[in-house]
Amino acid sequence: MAKITQEDFDHIIETELPWAQEIGMKTDKVGDGEAILRLPFNDNMLRPGGTVSGPTMMALADACMYAVILSAIGKVKLAVTTSFNINFMHRPAPGDLMAEGRILKLGKRLAVMEVTLHSDGHDEPVAHATGTYSIPPRS
């Protein structure tokens, strides 16, 4: 069972991740060790050439990883990204950007996750990210 709910993570976006709220990020689903986040399409996401910018996709992927780790360990605010890698695979179609993340390995101090990004309504991935989060020791 997930240690946080969809509503919990939306509240975290609203109160602790102001940059995510400003760009309209929403939580579609939180499960045990998995999450789906949505970034509604906005022209501000575009880079020259009319495609969604890399930093926009990276922000969504990292936020998704944060939701994934919290779903597994609970509200541990100091769980932080220690490594992040992304491969851009296809040009995103104009529309909401979706991030589907899951845990690959959960240890006592580190968690490894992956996130697949795609344009809403399209199955073809536009990017794939992997990352590691550091989990602080419980006091």
Rank of each mutant, 00 (worst) to 15 (best):
71 S>H: 00
51 T>K: 07
71 S>V: 04
91 R>W: 02
94 P>M: 01
70 L>I: 08
115 V>W: 01
68 V>I: 12
59 A>G: 14
122 H>N: 15
49 G>Q: 06
47 R>F: 12
72 A>Y: 02
97 L>M: 14
120 D>E: 15
54 G>R: 09
103 I>A: 02
110 L>W: 10
87 N>Y: 06
94 P>T: 07
112 V>L: 14
82 T>L: 09
53 S>D: 12
98 M>D: 00
113 M>A: 00
91 R>M: 13
57 M>K: 05
62 D>T: 03
121 G>P: 10
110 L>C: 12
103 I>G: 00
123 D>R: 13
67 A>G: 05
47 R>V: 13
95 G>M: 00
76 V>A: 09
55 P>D: 08
94 P>S: 00
124 E>H: 12
102 R>I: 08
51 T>Y: 00
54 G>P: 10
65 M>S: 07
106 L>K: 08
100 E>H: 11
50 G>M: 10
96 D>T: 05
69 I>G: 03
49 G>I: 10
77 K>D: 14
95 G>V: 05
127 A>V: 07
63 A>L: 11
89 M>A: 10
53 S>A: 15
55 P>C: 02
80 V>S: 12
82 T>S: 12
45 M>E: 02
66 Y>D: 09
73 I>D: 03
102 R>C: 08
89 M>K: 11
46 L>Y: 10
98 M>E: 00
61 A>Y: 02
99 A>R: 09
129 A>D: 08
60 L>E: 02
66 Y>I: 07
52 V>F: 00
93 A>Y: 01
112 V>G: 01
120 D>H: 13
119 S>K: 04
99 A>W: 00
71 S>Y: 11
120 D>T: 11
114 E>V: 07
87 N>W: 01
120 D>Q: 15
98 M>I: 15
86 I>K: 04
96 D>L: 08
97 L>A: 07
59 A>P: 05
96 D>H: 03
108 K>F: 10
130 T>K: 11
63 A>I: 08
84 F>G: 00
52 V>I: 15
100 E>A: 13
130 T>V: 15
77 K>F: 08
91 R>Y: 02
55 P>G: 07
89 M>T: 13
60 L>S: 03
82 T>G: 08
76 V>G: 05
64 C>T: 10
111 A>S: 11
100 E>S: 14
54 G>N: 11
78 L>W: 10
84 F>C: 09
116 T>W: 01
130 T>S: 14
104 L>M: 10
91 R>F: 05
64 C>L: 12
111 A>Q: 10
56 T>N: 03
102 R>W: 11
101 G>W: 06
